[in-house]
């Protein structure tokens, strides 16, 4: 982990670029929501501050995901280059080694605007932060991070079976993980909502938890508490993805040398 941090500081210019552009991107998204909500007064029952809460939560989980699990973005690249050879030679859990090797300090750049937006929304919304709410928030953050990671893991692990290039899968997955969490799910048609809830559970990253905190209704009238749901779905989805990753690793082909 320390090694990853030190590697990062070897390239200060690159770091500077990220520091400038990632927050710009995040705040840009917020600005878009502001424009939309002032133009249309409200969309799908969301106020601007509700949207900011929702959007901030999405960025914070994204930030946690890229801090702790950035490695999964490179799975197929590493497969194509035979990099798993090295990981498989360590006497440790290969997934753990895989994750720990690219611990990503740059994730702090992703997460900071998210925290700012989220805190701003919380202040404006006057939410009651009792113990239950805090526990719920922790559950939601863990669950959301695991769901995001699971999506990238599954997409990446396809590389064990077929030769794929990162650019293609990451574009698809980024579209899924980023764009579908930039607007609340309930503005989409019903069919898409079904897919993004039950097949690829991105709805649980921020739409449903935000609805729970806001006391709003959800499309599917899910009976369990939505924040708790996020944690459970997150764990289940992550375990599923992990199983797929391990299965893929058994099919690892390495490269010629």
């Amino acid at each position: 982990m320390r090694c990853a941090v030190q590697s990062w500081f070897e390239y200060p210019l690159e770091m500077l670029c990220w520091i400038i552009f990632i927050p710009l991107y995040s705040f840009g998204g917020l600005l878009l929501l502001k424009v939309i909500s002032t133009q249309f007064s409200e969309i799908g029952g969301w106020t601007f501050h509700g949207l900011a809460f929702f959007y901030g939560l999405g960025i914070v989980t994204h930030g946690l995901h890229v801090i702790f699990f950035f490695a999964v973005w490179h799975t197929n690249y590493m497969v194509l280059n035979g990099e798993f050879d090295r990981i498989l030679l360590y006497p440790m859990n290969p997934f753990f080694m895989f994750i720990i090797q690219s611990f990503n300090i740059a994730g702090y750049i992703d997460i900071t605007p998210g925290i700012i937006i989220f805190t701003y929304a919380c202040l404006k919304l006057n939410l009651d932060w009792n113990a239950v709410a805090i526990l719920k928030l922790i559950a939601v953050l863990i669950g959301g991070t695991l769901i995001r990671t699971g999506i990238f893991m599954i997409a990446g692990a396809i590389g064990f079976f077929r030769d794929t290039r990162n650019a293609v899968t990451n574009f698809m997955v980024d579209f899924l993980a980023y764009n579908t969490t930039a607007f609340p799910l309930n503005i989409y048609p019903y069919g898409i909502q079904v897919i993004l809830t039950f097949l690829i559970p991105v709805g649980f990253i921020n739409t449903y938890p935000a609805q729970d905190f806001m006391g709003m209704d959800n499309t599917f009238s899910i009976p369990i508490n939505l924040s708790l749901c996020t944690l459970l779905v997150g764990i289940a989805f992550f375990l599923l993805a992990y199983g797929f990753f391990r299965f893929g690793l058994k099919h690892y082909k390495s490269t010629g040398s």
């Binding site: 798993f84 498989l88 030679l89 390495s254």
Partner: peptide, 8 residues
């Protein structure tokens, strides 16, 4: 790679 457990 087979002897070292990398490949099946």
């Amino acid at each position: 790679k087979i002897l070292t457990g990398i490949l099946q």
